[in-house]
């Protein structure tokens, strides 16, 4: 479902090679997996590779049966559309669209007709508790509301894997808690949540915690 083998990513920066991720192998079980580590340890790099935003320097990634490392940009985009959802730390939403239209956007890309799209988007907004904000633009929403709209959008096509990079990083603890609960609710028997965070308290809600340091997986901790 979601599997990495000997995954490495090296960047060339000013003539010297930066090792952002080295030899990462892990098969993500169903449920929630947290990735923690100090700044610069390669968490975002790993997420980018798992989600197919970027291609590895070496190794393989498999998402929903597709070898992402072997696909081109557009093919990876198609896999993402069907099988992956994202929530970033901030600026998740398209600023010129309303909350409803943001949630409906992946459905538009998938070719869902307008009426069904809006129906489904409204339903998703209700599910994350911001139904009454449907017609608002992102800049009219609070940070917590924006994150919830982003979650609604990530869930629009019921992806197998939900990726979140510091989704609560900009939120106070109360709204951070709500966002975290919504994300965790998605992780289940079939579904996976990959949660990157600095916050060990947040990470402790996941079933497993992967510890990264200097681009290497140094520890796998079972919790919950």
């Amino acid at each position: 479902m979601l599997k990495a083998e000997n995954l490495s990513k090296h960047y060339l920066q000013g003539g010297t090679e930066v090792v952002a991720l080295e030899d990462f192998s892990y098969s993500f079980p169903a449920g929630a997996t947290a990735i923690v580590g100090p700044s610069g340890s390669g968490k975002t790099t790993l997420l980018n590779l798992l989600a197919g935003f970027d291609v590895p320097s070496r190794g393989r990634v498999e998402l929903a049966g597709e070898r992402l490392d072997e696909l081109n940009e557009d093919e990876r985009a198609a896999v993402r559309l069907r099988h992956a959802g994202f929530v970033f730390q901030s600026w998740n939403l398209l600023p010129t669209l309303t909350a409803l239209e943001n949630v409906a956007f992946p459905l538009l890309l998938a070719g869902v007709a307008r009426v069904q799209r809006e129906e489904r988007a409204q339903e998703l907004l209700s599910r994350v508790g911001v139904a009454e904000r449907a017609e608002h633009r992102p800049n009219q929403l609070s940070g917590g509301e924006q994150q919830r709209v982003a979650i609604a959008r990530a869930l629009a096509l019921e992806p197998a894997v939900l990726f979140a990079d510091e989704p609560t990083g900009n939120l106070d603890s109360a709204s951070g808690r709500k966002v975290l609960d919504l994300l965790l609710a998605h992780a289940g028997d079939e579904r996976r949540l990959v949660l990157v965070t600095h916050d060990l308290d947040v990470a402790s809600h996941a079933q497993r915690i992967l510890h990264l340091r200097d681009g290497r997986l140094i520890d796998i901790e079972k919790s919950g």
Binding site: A51, F53, E73, D74, A77, A78, R80, L81, R82, F86, W91, N92, L93, L94, P95, T96, F105, P106, L109, A110, R153
Partner: peptide, 16 residues
């Protein structure tokens, strides 16, 4: 640029 990044992340192709 960021908007296009988001669109692509969600699954928009380059052509889009």
């Amino acid at each position: 640029t960021r908007e296009f990044g988001i669109m692509r992340a969600v699954g928009a192709r380059r052509r889009f």
